[in-house]
Structure formats: C-alpha cells, structure tokens
Design a protein around this nucleic acid. Structure first.
Length: 220
DNA sequence: GCATTAAGTGGCC
DNA sequence: GGCCACTTAATGC
C-alpha cells in the first residue's frame, strides 16, 4: 500500500494528519507519457507527486512544446487557484516516467488548506521556488548557449538529488530520455546528444546505465 | 522476425 | 544550433 510522507509539500504533518489528508483523496498510478490534464480544461483536481516525474508544458498549434516546469516527489501541482480563483488548468501535464500521483479534488484541497495552517505556510515557499527556477531558465534560454543550459540543468539536479560518491563525483538518476531533456531546456534532441558527447570527452560526465549519469560538477 | 522508439552522426543552412 | 536524413541499438509484440 502506498502512503503519503511528510516531506515536500506535506512537510511537518503528523502521522495522524497525513492519514486525514489521505482520506480526502485517491492514489493514481501512471504509465510513462500519460496525460494528467490539458491546458484550458476545467480545474477539477490538484495532484501531489508521490513518485515519478511530471512535465507541465504548453503546446502551440504546430505541436511545438514548451516545458514550463517539472514536478517530482513532494511537489503539488498546479499552483494556480490555491490563492486565487483560477478555474482552468494553466498548462498541460503529462508523466515522463511511470509513477504515482495523489489526487485531491478542488473541494478537498480547499478543506486541507484551511485545516492545516502549516501547509498554507509552505505555499509561499513553493511558489517562490518554482518562480525563481522558471525565471532562471528563461534568462538562460535568452542569454545562454545550449551547452550552458544543459550544464545548468545538470548542476541543479546534482544539487537537488545527486548522490555524492566517495571521490566527489555525483550519481544522478535522471529518469529522463535525452528527448525529455531537450524539451525541457528548449533545444533539439540532436543538440543534447552532441553536448553530452562533449561532456563525456571532457570527463565531466559518464554514462551509468539507463537514465543515469555520473557527474563531476567542477568540470561542467 | 518486425515495428517502434531512443540515441548517435553527418551534412546543409 | 536547428533541421533533415540516415544508421544503430534496444525493446516489445
């Protein structure tokens, strides 16, 4: 049986409180590339990422995607409507990896926010965090090169979820294909492939099996 | 086996 | 660096 844990967005809740939250929603397991909701649809529910990786993106009429943000364990999305009265989803969302989501109806979400002040307090922190991430990425994409963007992406992941090895290298579980990375940093898959090749040559990165990399942040 | 998808490469703009 | 064409490798009926 899957359960919620008191980290990320639910940090600080007691076991009893987590139990109470669990009773207000339902778990949903997802395959890779499964749509959670579409941009513009009526906002009926919020999702907490239990496990897996989710992409929130916009798509134009030619099918070009622009990834706004990624969500992983402990993240709640979307962020709109929590403080205002937005009625529709602000972007589309789909799973990148398989995983589990915890679904809370709009009503349940409102109840939780009013019942647990500690959660409400987290809200500002999360909004700020995601906002800064987004701003940094936009700034990178306007002023930076593709390799700079990939380096920034890898550094952020190392910081967030890298596992330090004894020799100072970091093991990174990307759980993304090169295409996913390309979408996220806004370049073509070929470019990601070529930049990675350069990083291998520079010994800044090594392959470590499917979806995994070993990184030397000092050489990025 | 065959089809599909991801990854890698070279060429052209 | 994008885009196109092509090859190769891996995965799944």
């Amino acid at each position: 049986m899957v359960h919620l844990s008191n980290d990320g967005w639910l940090e600080g809740l007691t076991k009893e409180e987590l139990q109470a939250v669990e009773e207000k929603g339902t778990f949903r397991s997802c395959r890779p590339r499964e749509t959670v909701f579409y941009d513009g649809e009526k906002l009926t529910a919020y999702y907490l990422v239990v496990d897996g990786l989710i992409s929130a993106y916009h798509q134009n009429s030619e099918g070009k995607k622009w990834v706004a943000s990624l969500f992983s364990h402990g993240d709640l999305f979307p962020h709109v409507g929590l403080l205002n009265q937005a009625r529709t989803y602000p972007a589309s969302a789909e799973t990148i990896t398989s995983g589990t989501l915890f679904r809370l109806s709009r009503k349940a979400m409102a109840e939780i926010l009013s019942t647990y002040p500690s959660i409400r307090a987290h809200l500002e922190r999360f909004l700020t965090e995601k906002n800064q991430e987004l701003m940094a990425r936009i700034s990178d994409s306007v002023f930076g090169t593709a390799s700079g963007r990939l380096a920034a992406f890898l550094r952020k992941l190392v910081e967030k979820s890298g596992v330090r090895q004894t020799d100072g290298r970091y093991l990174l579980k990307l759980n993304m294909t090169e295409q996913d990375i390309a979408e996220y940093i806004g370049v073509t898959p070929e470019t990601v492939s070529r930049i990675l090749r350069d990083l291998y040559d520079k010994r800044a990165a090594e392959k470590a099996g499917k979806g995994k990399l070993i990184i030397r942040p000092d050489r990025l």
